[in-house]
Design a protein around this nucleic acid. Structure first.
Length: 233
DNA sequence: CCCTGATTCGC
DNA sequence: GCGAATCAGG
C-alpha cells in the first residue's frame, strides 16, 4: 500500500485530530501502526501526548538537561533473523471493523434517507474495500430490520477527524443529508449544505439522488449508493 | 499483559 | 521513503 495524497491527508487529519496511530492505521487499512507513526514523523507531524515521553523540561536553570547518553548505538547488531511479523500474526486480517459509534441522539428521529442502518444487523460481507469499508452483495443491503432495536444512548465520542463536519447530530431540516464517506469510517459525515427547499438534499445531491428517467436504452442504473461504490467525495 | 508513541536501521 | 523491530512509559 502506498502513501497516496489522499491517504496522507487522512493521516495528517487524524493525527492532528488526536487519533491514535492504531486507529489511523485501521482506518487507512493496509498499513501497520508503525507505518503510520513512521510516516507521521517523516511528514514532520510529531509528538503528541506520548506515553513514553515523560519528558518534562525543567525550567530550572540549575539542571542543564543532561542528555542521557548517545542513543543505543548498537543494541542489536545481530541480524534480525525473525521474518515473523508478530504484529500481523496476533491481529489477523480483521474482517469486521466495528461500526463507528455515532450515537443516535435523543429522541430526534432521523428520517431515513439513504442513511444505511447504523449499528444493527451486519449484512453479509463480500469483501473489504479500500479504506476498510465493507462491500456487500447486492441483495444484502436491506435485510429485514423493521423492528427498531432498542437503542442505547452511547456517549460515543465522534472521531477527531470529523471536526467541523456535519455529523449525524448536526442534521436538521435545513441541511443536506447526503452522506460523505462511509459509515464506520472516522470521517464519515454529511454534506451539510443548505437543502434544496422541499428536499432532503442540497441541489447538487438532489441531482444525484433524483435522476431523471432517461428514455429506455442507454441507462446505467446506479442507484444513489451511499454504500458499495467507490468513495464519492 | 495491554496500550501508547519514538527510534533505529535494513531494505 | 518505508516500516518491522525494538524501546520505553502508562
Amino acid at each position: 500500500m502506498s502513501w497516496t495524497d489522499e491517504r496522507i491527508g487522512t493521516l495528517k487529519k487524524m493525527w492532528e485530530g488526536g487519533s491514535t496511530a492504531s486507529q489511523i492505521a485501521e482506518e487507512l487499512g493496509g498499513v501497520s501502526r508503525n507505518a503510520v507513526i513512521g510516516k507521521a514523523h517523516r511528514l514532520g507531524l510529531k509528538s503528541r501526548p506520548s506515553p513514553v515521553k515523560a519528558n518534562d523540561k525543567k525550567a530550572d536553570p540549575k539542571t542543564p538537561a543532561p542528555k542521557p547518553a548517545a542513543k543505543k548505538a548498537a543494541p542489536k547488531p545481530a541480524a534480525r533473523p525473525a521474518p515473523v511479523r508478530p504484529q500481523a500474526a496476533k491481529h489477523p486480517p480483521r474482517p469486521v471493523p466495528p461500526v463507528a459509534s455515532h450515537a443516535t441522539p435523543e429522541g430526534k428521529d432521523i428520517p431515513s434517507q439513504p442513511m444505511p442502518n447504523p449499528s444493527n444487523n451486519l449484512p453479509k460481507i463480500v469483501s473489504v474495500g479500500p479504506g476498510g469499508f465493507l462491500r456487500q452483495g447486492p441483495g444484502d443491503q436491506q435485510p429485514p430490520i423493521p423492528p427498531a432495536p432498542p437503542r442505547r444512548l452511547v456517549p460515543a465520542k465522534p472521531s477527531p477527524s470529523i471536526a467541523g463536519k456535519t455529523t449525524l447530530l448536526d442534521l436538521n431540516d435545513k441541511v443536506c443529508r447526503w452522506p460523505m464517506g462511509h459509515p464506520g469510517e472516522p470521517d464519515f459525515h454529511f454534506c451539510g449544505q443548505d437543502v434544496n427547499p422541499g428536499f432532503p438534499y442540497c441541489v447538487e445531491h438532489c441531482g444525484r439522488a433524483f435522476q431523471a428517467q432517461l428514455p429506455r436504452g442507454s441507462r446505467r442504473p446506479p442507484p444513489p449508493l451511499p454504500f458499495g461504490g467507490p468513495r464519492v467525495r
